[in-house]
Design a protein around this nucleic acid. Structure first.
Lengths: 243, 243
DNA sequence: CAGTTTATGTAACACCATGCAACAAAATCG
DNA sequence: CGATTTTGTTGCATGGTGTTACATAAACTG
């Protein structure tokens, strides 16, 4: 595996430098960029493995840039935001980012997320990313991301809680790829402070609850399988419609 | 297209209320603040697009506060002053404000300056937008802003109260973007000071009432969804006719 | 292989946010 | 004014989510 090349996008010079410097110390190639144009120049020219994008490029611009980049490119994106409220926005308004992290963040946590996203996207390199994706189908089930609706093979509407939905989304984005509890927690954790996961079994219980809703036999799951000692996997193929 | 959030800083209650009230009528989210502490609280917590700062703050000098805020934050500031002499001082003493305006001022002039500063700082400036807009369509429903009429998908006229209408407007202006209770309260409250909505559940009840009128199944809302731990979101696309 | 250890499934509980009905206050209208 | 409508408040019910405790399954150890 080559050294990852990460594009640090922030219009604030201090923040930009701080981030690139830190990342370089961690042994990755970090390239600074201040504007969307610079980003596109880098993308057109070099091999960029990941984009670290600050949300606060003027209120909503970061989000727009994110979805715009996502429309054209397959490069994974991690959004950085200062305000916890932005996280709510991002989770509700699907921009297509692969992960979010709140400022101020623990450097180690940032690294972990970067690693997680990179390994996730490298393993599923050929996988077309979400972008404007709207409908997922797996094992007869249907999940409409826009309407946030789940239909059983029989066509019955099944109500999932917010958390259950988020878990399903995380799994659908990584079919056949085992996700560790940490990765799942990171995907779920909209609030940024993911340390809350250290103690509990929240993920396990959540998985159990999702199984009870989408598995015919929750005791012997066919869709959401356990990876003992590691985490869980979505064990079915997934097709994505962009309708 | 997000509604701009403007922080009105003035230690004189009357002036504060007058300004917030006026701005809210113009369709922006105006939040009152009396002290530097309150300002910082808002800045730390919410997304503020612009600060309207009175020079004549009793004990503290507005100029000092301005430069202090400017040192830490990137939020644009417009200074309001009563004395033309202040203008002299401000221009000579570079505090970092983006613009100045003298009291008493022409409301339209203030609006124009706000718009100018907002667009200059590349934040969403959609002030005049709301004027001409007339008809919103969402999920089969129609809301005619001019006649203040709501039509159901079946073409039946539905009567909404003032507050219900205001809530609907706020949501229609931000489709797919979750709004916090505080933001909703600010968008509703034309009456000024009651930013202390934190205590009550008025918003929740109001949302419930709107749901009972525009949701086929208020128990399982498809249009006005809950963002647990945060607020509410309009979960449908919205088209706007200007005719 | 039996016993032990460890990981996972899951029911029961606790806690809190939200939905909502009922009431109270306030505004509106005649 | 009084009547009616609107709006806020309160208390209770409901439902989502994390924690805990225990049962069960898998892995490990000799």
């Amino acid at each position: 595996m080559t050294i990852p090349r990460i594009l640090v996008v922030d219009d604030d010079a201090d923040m930009r430098q701080m981030l690139t410097q830190f990342l370089r110390q961690q042994g990755v190639i970090a390239l600074p960029a201040a504007t969307e144009e610079e980003v596109r120049a880098h993308l057109a020219q070099g091999r960029i493995d990941l984009i670290l994008l600050d949300v606060m490029l003027g209120d909503e611009n970061g989000l727009e840039i994110c979805s715009r980049l996502r429309r054209d490119q397959a490069v994974p994106i991690i959004m950085v935001s200062t305000l916890s409220a932005d996280h709510q926005r991002m989770s509700g308004y699907d921009v297509g980012a692969d992960d979010y992290i709140a400022k101020p963040f623990n450097p180690q946590l940032l690294l972990a997320r970067i690693k997680a996203v990179l390994s996730r996207t490298r393993r599923s390199a050929s996988l077309a990313h979400r972008r404007n994706t709207k409908t997922f189908r797996f094992d007869g089930w249907t999940y409409n991301a826009k309407r946030d609706e789940v239909l059983s093979p029989a066509g019955v509407h099944v109500a999932l809680s917010k958390r259950e939905t988020a878990l399903l989304q995380a799994l659908l984005a990584n079919p056949h790829i085992p996700l560790s509890r940490e990765e799942i927690a990171a995907a779920l954790d909209v609030s940024g402070e993911s340390t809350a996961e250290a103690s509990g079994r929240a993920i396990d219980v959540l998985v159990g609850r999702l199984r009870s809703k989408i598995e015919a036999q929750p005791k012997d799951p066919r869709i959401l399988k356990t990876e003992r000692g590691f985490g869980y996997v979505l064990a079915t193929d997934v097709t994505v419609d962009d309708t």
